[in-house]
Nucleic acid binder design. Structure first.
Length: 258
DNA sequence: ATGGCTTAGTTCCTAAGA
């Protein structure tokens, strides 16, 4: 089983790329972020025609997350996180597919920092941690996949210097991410690339792709029951270089059948 | 770099992203 997290940066603009990816890689489960589409304009028919069922949590222009499953309809478990009743951002969608619990996560960017957007980011990480703890208690194969907007380690970026003031790698952002992981989650990419140097995002600006000036912010966190089945993990980097690509590349983990 | 692209909506400019 191959599960992918893919920040598409606009599902309408990216639909040809997404359908191409589904056809070429045939992933079993895909967690999408940054749909930038309302619920009403989500391209359900195109995705279904490609052989995938879907659940989605949209929002006009910004944010938006979805879970796709090949040859199956994901069963929604929860949309949004508890703990902040006036939070109207579509950033969390949890579903069950074929006995596996999956969440598609779009953690707030948090720039500029310091400031209210950074404070929201840190609160959101805490709220995610509370949900993650409840999920661990279920003792099931569970995967929290998404754009965490956190660079976990210094070797997860092309340049610590260039990113040192960015919300993505502030000590508080890293501490929040590590606190969630330390509950008992396994960072799938890190187990396969323990010395870092693997990127999932390359900025559109300043020739970042051409210079390979990227960093790792898209992560798959695995419950112990999922980690036990982990076979491999990586980044489908080639898709970042294609015409009209997202600034993120599809990031994946593969599993033995349970 | 207070922003070099890219996306979407209020479109022929502004806001947001990371």
């Amino acid at each position: 089983m191959k599960i992918v997290t893919y920040n598409v940066n606009g599902i309408k603009a990216r639909l040809p790329r997404l359908l191409e990816y589904l056809a070429e890689q045939a992933p079993d489960i895909v967690c999408l972020q940054e749909l930038k589409s309302s619920d009403e304009t989500f391209p359900e028919a195109d995705i279904r025609a490609a052989g995938y069922g879907a659940v989605w949590h949209g929002q006009k222009a910004f944010n938006g997350v979805a879970v796709l499953a090949r040859g199956a309809d994901p069963v929604e478990r929860q949309r949004g996180l508890d703990g902040e009743s006036d939070d109207d951002h579509s950033r969390y969608l949890e579903a069950e597919v074929d006995g596996v619990v999956v969440a598609s996560i779009y953690l707030p960017n948090g720039n500029p920092q310091p400031g209210p957007k950074f404070d929201y980011k840190l609160r959101w990480i805490d709220r995610l941690g509370q949900r993650a703890r409840a999920l661990l208690a279920e003792e099931r194969p569970t995967i929290l996949a998404g754009d965490y907007n956190v660079i976990p380690n210094d070797d997860d970026t092309y340049s610590v210097h260039a990113m040192q003031d960015d919300a993505l790698m502030q000590p508080e952002s890293r501490a929040g991410f590590r606190a969630v992981a330390a509950q008992g989650w396994t960072d799938a990419l890190r187990t396969r690339h323990p010395r870092g140097g693997v990127w999932t995002f390359w900025d559109y600006q300043a020739g970042a792709w051409q210079r390979d000036a990227g960093f790792r912010i898209d992560h798959l966190l695995l419950s112990p029951q999922a980690a036990d089945r982990l076979v491999d993990a990586g980044v489908d980097k080639e898709y970042r270089g294609r015409d009209k690509a997202s600034d993120h590349a599809p990031t994946w983990a593969s599993f033995r059948d349970g």
